[in-house]
C-alpha cells in the first residue's frame, strides 16, 4: 500500500501525537511510581494506593467513545480512504498469552509503550535499556506470531 503523505494527514498525526504525549505527562503516566502505585492493590487496605490510572482511563475512553460514534456517521475518515478497523474478533492463544507477558513486564516496570516513548524527552537513567529491550521484544514477537500462525495452518489443513 502506498503511504499517504497528504499534509493534512501528517498534520493530524502531529496534533494527535502532541495531545497524546501531553496527556500522558499531565496525567503522570510517565512516572513509573504513579503507575505502580495504582497496580499495588495491596495498598488499598494499608493506605497509600494511587487511584490516578483509573481517573485517566475513564475520560480517555469516554472521549474516544464519542469519537468512535461520530466516525460511525462517516463513510471514511477526513484524510484517508478508509477506517483501519482491526478485523479480527476471535479470542486466540496469542491474544491472551501476549497480554500475560505484557502484564508481567508492565507490573515489573510500571512502563507501557506510550510512556516509554514519551519518556525519551526526559531520558531518565536506563531508559535506553528498556527501549532497546522493548524493540527487541517486538521484533522477536513478529517471529513468534509467524511460527504460531504456521502451526495453526498445518493443524487446520485437511488430512490426506
Amino acid at each position: 500500500m502506498r503511504e499517504t503523505l497528504h499534509p493534512a494527514y501528517l498534520a493530524v498525526s502531529l496534533v494527535a501525537g502532541l495531545l497524546f504525549g501531553a496527556g500522558l505527562y499531565i496525567a503522570q503516566m510517565t512516572d513509573p511510581l504513579v503507575v505502580l502505585g495504582f497496580l499495588d492493590f495491596g495498598a488499598i487496605t494499608t493506605g497509600g494506593w494511587n487511584p490516578s490510572l483509573a481517573l485517566v482511563i475513564v475520560p480517555a475512553i469516554g472521549v474516544m467513545m464519542l469519537g468512535v460514534r461520530y466516525a460511525g456517521t462517516r463513510a471514511r475518515p477526513l484524510f484517508e480512504h478508509k477506517f483501519f478497523h482491526p478485523e479480527r474478533t476471535d479470542i486466540d492463544t496469542p491474544l491472551v498469552g501476549g497480554a500475560v507477558l505484557f502484564g508481567i513486564g508492565w507490573g515489573m516496570s510500571g512502563i507501557c509503550p506510550g510512556p516509554a516513548i514519551t519518556l525519551i524527552g526526559f531520558m531518565p537513567e536506563n531508559l535506553w535499556i528498556f527501549l532497546g529491550a522493548m524493540f527487541l521484544g517486538s521484533f522477536l514477537g513478529h517471529y513468534v506470531l509467524e511460527a504460531f500462525n504456521r502451526r495453526e495452518l498445518i493443524a487446520s489443513a485437511p488430512a490426506e
Binding site: A16, G23, P59, V63, G67, E80
Partner: peptide, 20 residues
C-alpha cells in the same frame, strides 16, 4: 489525571476521525 485522560482520548479520537 482527569485532564490528562481527556487529552489522551482526544488524541485517539483525532487520529481515528482524521486518518482512520
Amino acid at each position: 489525571p482527569l485532564v490528562g485522560g481527556l487529552l489522551i482520548g482526544l488524541a485517539s479520537a483525532v487520529l481515528w476521525i482524521g486518518n482512520g
